[in-house]
């Protein structure tokens, strides 16, 4: 998404991204970014919370006019309040799931290898 924003911007279309992966977007660098500090999946606001969604989308759209230059990041003034453990849960690796993850990766590689063979035939 960051690459697309930069391409559009370089070709005359102002852009603003709403997202929740602050480090990835800022590592790439984009013109305008509204950061929602939520679990990945709901950047525009909590599900079913129409008021919050309107505030976040309006905040983003206003950056099209307010931002003074590239790498503008604005943090949406909301938190993911009902579930304090969400931050640690994403892609969590534990002693319990480590072997299963490795098996999943092995299966993916085997499948991909088979696909490549089929494509070459």
């Amino acid at each position: 998404m960051s690459l697309v924003a930069n391409y559009l911007e370089a070709n005359g279309i102002p852009t603003v991204i709403i997202g929740s992966a602050l480090d990835i977007v800022e590592h790439c660098g984009v013109p305008r970014f509204v950061f929602s500090d939520f679990p990945l999946g709901n950047p525009c606001g909590h599900p079913r919370d129409r008021g919050m969604q309107a505030e976040i989308v309006a905040l983003a759209l206003r950056q099209l006019e307010l931002a003074e230059g590239p790498r503008t990041t604005v943090r949406a003034p909301f938190e993911w309040t009902d579930d304090p453990d969400w931050r640690a849960r994403y892609n969590l690796i534990t002693s319990e799931n480590r072997a299963r993850l490795r098996a999943t990766g092995d299966a993916r590689r085997t499948q991909r290898g088979q696909t490549k063979v089929e494509a070459a035939e």
Binding site: G41, P47, D83, R89
Partner: peptide
């Protein structure tokens, strides 16, 4: 996306 912490049942959230 964070399938263990939320859902994408509400289109307006994304």
């Amino acid at each position: 996306w964070d399938k263990e912490s939320t859902h994408t049942d509400d289109r307006e959230s994304f």
